[in-house]
């Protein structure tokens, strides 16, 4: 449990508190928007944050847990500070997504099936169709999309770090 919790900065804590105050008593139907907003501040959702969300919304804790577990964009364990999602569904595969994934995995030194770098800077995910099939192969870094990517561009996209 101890390992699984965050160390949040005072600014992050204050920001989370502001969000939770706004969601006070809003009930279960506000759960997904609330999780989105909090995770945007904290990166992932630990038990203490989830307990605070449950208290604010008045939702049983297990119902928060099972929702995070269901949706792939919510995380209840640590992830990289930046997330790169590479599409490998049919149109992207036809445009060479395998080579893109290989380039990302090599560069980040993580498994081709996805993973987080040792320094916690990046998480690589092989993501289901991202809906940019006309720009295949396609990937997203956080909320930014990159179409028609080539393996040669990957080093630049992932920053200078080897």
């Amino acid at each position: 449990m101890k390992d699984a919790t965050h160390t949040l900065t005072p600014q992050q804590l204050a920001a989370v508190e502001t969000v939770l105050a706004r969601y006070q008593g809003k009930g279960r139907s506000a759960l997904l928007p609330c999780l989105h907003e909090v995770q945007a501040i904290t990166g992932w959702l630990d038990p203490e944050i989830c307990a605070a969300i449950g208290q604010s919304l008045r939702v049983p804790l297990v119902q928060i847990h099972e929702v995070i577990e269901f949706y792939t964009l919510f995380y209840n364990r640590p992830v990289g500070r930046r997330i790169i999602r590479v599409c490998d569904d049919v149109p992207c595969y036809l445009a060479g997504s395998e080579a893109i994934i290989r380039a990302c995995a090599t560069r980040l030194r993580v498994d081709e099936g996805g993973g987080t770098t040792e320094d916690g800077a990046w998480t690589l995910e092989i993501h289901p169709c991202l809906g940019r099939c006309e720009q295949a192969p396609f990937l997203m870094i956080d909320d930014e999309g990159y179409g028609h990517v080539t393996p040669e561009q990957i080093a630049d996209l992932l920053g200078g770090k080897p």
Binding site: D89, V90, P91, P128, C129, G131, R132, C133, E134
Partner: peptide, 11 residues
């Protein structure tokens, strides 16, 4: 929620 692989019209 358009998530069908190959679909991007609604986006």
């Amino acid at each position: 929620d358009e998530s069908e692989p190959g679909t991007f019209k609604d986006r």
